[in-house]
Nucleic acid binder design. Structure first.
Lengths: 239, 239
DNA sequence: GTCTATAACCGGATAGAC
DNA sequence: GTCTATCCGGTTATAGAC
């Protein structure tokens, strides 16, 4: 909100970048140890060996620490996915691998994920996946889906190809929403959801490539564009 | 958390029931006027003409005022739906009327709905639609879908009929999630979403009644039960 | 036993000195 | 870039009135 002296920046290596890292490490450790609500900013500062005010110099709010968590979680997903996609050309298996990798890498954070995502449904929160603040991570996640497609033997029609990465990302968001509420051991229900719905999704995509179904495909894509463009889900500040 | 002297109860008419109502009115008015975050409990108490401590006697937390809002919003939806369903037998039109009534009655709250629903994605929050605290409203909302079905000419197979009210409610939740992020004038995109997806949904339900598709129907219903039963989405305290 | 008020407490966030 | 001192508002403790 208030003016910040030459924002420490998300990625730039600066003088106090080390301090920033220290604070983030302390925060994540405490979040994992005792949860989000139970972790006070004072505790984070103390654990990091800095003052409260200093912690707020690097992170404008407690929520901003969550944003940093998102970025880390996404990077772990990228790393986990890379190796699993290496030798796989089958589109269905690539989607399966990507989603399971997401669940795998997110598992350590499940305990407090609910709190992390509590702002996910708030259009005014920078933490919602459609916000400007989330843009960088969102675009990278969509790009990941692009690689999932392009590295496969799938060759969808151009119009479908254009929307597909975003649609797959939306699908991933849905799976994550389910995952948040999933209390089963090993997130078994979410795994089940993935295993059962991915074949359906990939089947539909394949069907969409059939020339006979072109009119239907175009109608569906038109609807999707209408629902996304303009305001809702537009990715503006309010989502 | 702490012991409370014979909880004032949600609906019982008691001596101070009037005070409770005054506080709730004040809170809702202020929420609408300046939003959730900007409304302090002190302001609510002042507006209601009671002390801060008194406000907390009737509502254990600021969030509990939101729960009360949910109930009111639901009652308005019930009222608005009743008249619109009166003379309509067509299933598709009944679903359309029900969902549009939901959007109509929720519109006044849209401005601050994001904040109201910010805990909706937190499995540990009593505000999430799957929580114990939300049970009463949730069950009434599912029952509304039951009436939408039973008052129509639709006659689905027993196994589908059993799951259908809950599934329609889930569908409604999805529409509301979209609505939260919808900043278009008059919530036009959400209306569009409803108008375009309700026919698809009702078509699928009709198809599901076709004896030829019984095996497919049973497989789908089995998957749905598997995903719902057990832990995830079970409606326990953690969702 | 039901209700109401006052005075803290605690933690997120900010101001401003160094 | 880092600190100390405050502010502010949700929440709690508790005393006491009806």
């Amino acid at each position: 909100m208030s003016a910040k002296p030459a924002s420490p920046g998300r990625k730039k290596a600066g003088k106090g970048e080390e301090t920033r890292a220290k604070i983030l490490e302390a925060a994540l450790a405490l979040f994992m140890e005792r949860g989000f609500e139970q972790t006070t900013m004072r505790a984070v500062a103390e654990e990091a060996g800095v003052s409260l005010g200093n912690a707020y110099y690097y992170f404008e709010s407690k929520e901003e620490l969550v944003q940093a968590f998102y970025e880390r979680s996404h990077e772990e997903h990228l790393a986990a996915t890379a190796s699993r996609l290496e030798a796989e050309r089958d589109f269905r298996k690539r989607v399966l691998a990507t989603l399971h990798a997401k669940i795998d890498t997110s598992e350590p954070y499940h305990r407090f994920s609910g709190v992390l995502f509590r702002s996910a449904a708030d259009p005014h929160s920078p933490l919602n996946p459609f916000s400007d603040a989330s843009r960088a991570v969102r675009e990278e996640a969509v790009q990941l889906m692009e690689r999932v497609i392009d590295g496969s033997s799938l060759d969808p029609p151009a119009d479908l190809r254009r929307e597909l990465p975003y649609l797959l990302w939306l699908y991933e968001m849905g799976v994550i929403l389910f995952w948040i509420f999933d209390t089963s051991r090993g997130r078994g229900r979410t795994r089940h959801l993935i295993d059962r719905t991915v074949p359906i999704v990939t089947r539909l995509i394949s069907l969409g490539g059939n020339p006979i179904l072109a009119p239907l495909r175009k109608a569906v894509l038109k609807l999707i564009r209408e629902l996304r463009d303009g305001d809702a889900f537009a990715g503006g500040d309010a989502g």
